[in-house]
Write a protein that binds this DNA or RNA. Structure first.
Lengths: 210, 210
DNA sequence: TTTCATATTGTACCTTGGGACAGGCGGCCG
DNA sequence: CGGCCGCCTGTCCCAAGGTACAATATGAAA
């Protein structure tokens, strides 16, 4: 386990001490004195890891950074680590998806436990994200027309209905449908529907009245 | 809005005061002096509502009750309301799905806000649950054989393959398949797959090697 | 201007799905 | 025991999906 731990804290000595502790525990550690710094050298998703984040840091606060990272679709789990914790902030942080909320001083084993949970969650999130993204990539390769056909067939329309709704012929739809199956790398309608369902691109769509 | 608020607190006077406040705010209120009492007269899902729960109550604690209710598949959101809140308990409660975690004394408007959020969430959860349950009910009406056919066709098998895997003929599968579509009240394979996906009864299942 | 991707359409043929109609076998319950 | 249900099976036929082979048109890119 060579997971990255990103420490964001304005207290130099605390940061250094924590860095040393975690390196001894086998982690790769990167430190940041402010939220800004972390955003500037934003860690990607290439490696499993997590963020250890102080609540009160100069400039952008911990929860603010959390919000920003959420906006940026970051999957990096956050473990808050702070001196004083008021209930509202704690609740807000956890609701916003933080993996944990710990108070200083913190026992090493308890911290490591939290980090391990966070890293495990990150690994899970990454793999889910990877699957999701690869499906989205496939979908993105469809031409606009193919995408229209895709949407209709995963809603259960038969070729004839699709042809009617798109103002073309059944033969043409067969061609597009073939392309769709090809590009989405599926052999059956069932798989196609399953993908659509998982990507959330499937609105049941009323039955046709023709 | 005639939502039910279930107050669980061992402090008689607090319970009564809170009950009065909430009734004035238009809620229907039920009070319980212990976790046991609430479990005994367990509120169903018929009406929207939420639970106001103290952390430290005699017998089963707030978080313990929360765990028990989660086991029981309760959808009733919990708003913790307690005098003293340590961080670990707060984090644990929110992670376990509590809607909020407030400390006494609490301003009415803030409490009402939390209750409103909880009730809204309950309404959402109830409607989702209802849809889910109705699908499960349909699925439960399938005979064992039909269920096997269902599982295979939503994985993309064609009749011939299903027949082979179940050691019977294509004709028989057609009959079962017809029954499945009938009982599940769907007109297309797409809808059937969608249901399977939402019910999580669909394991991709490897391609057939025949 | 040539080339490429996209969108379109056609014919012919085969496979798969699905309905209509009809029947057989075995277990469970009143 | 008779009837109901689950399960199985058959034939005929049509509709829908899928493929091979082929071709046209248009706009954008090289």
């Amino acid at each position: 386990m060579h997971a990255y731990v990103h420490i964001v804290d304005d207290d130099d000595s605390f940061r250094t001490a924590l860095e040393r502790r975690l390196k001894l525990a086998g982690y790769r550690v990167l430190t940041y004195a402010s939220a800004r710094q972390l955003l500037d050298r934003l860690p990607g998703d290439e490696e499993a890891g997590c963020i250890l984040l102080d609540v009160r840091i100069p400039g952008m606060s911990g929860p603010e950074l959390q919000g920003r990272l959420n906006e940026l679709q970051s999957t990096l789990p956050i473990v808050f680590l702070t001196g004083y914790a008021d209930t509202a902030t704690t609740v807000q942080a956890i609701k916003a998806g933080a993996e944990d909320f710990l108070t200083k001083p913190i026992a090493s084993d308890q911290l490591i436990e939290a980090i391990e949970r966070a890293v495990a969650r990150h690994e899970l999130a990454r793999s889910q994200r990877a699957r999701f993204d690869s499906l989205r990539a496939l979908l993105a390769r469809l031409t606009p027309r193919e995408r229209q056909v895709f949407d209709l067939i995963v809603c259960g329309r038969i070729n004839k209905q699709v042809a009617y709704e798109l103002g073309t012929t059944e033969r043409t739809i067969k061609a597009h449908r073939h392309q769709v199956m090809e590009k989405m790398q599926v052999q059956s309608l069932a798989e196609l529907v399953s993908i659509a369902e998982r990507l959330g691109t499937r609105q049941p769509g009323g039955a046709v009245r023709g």
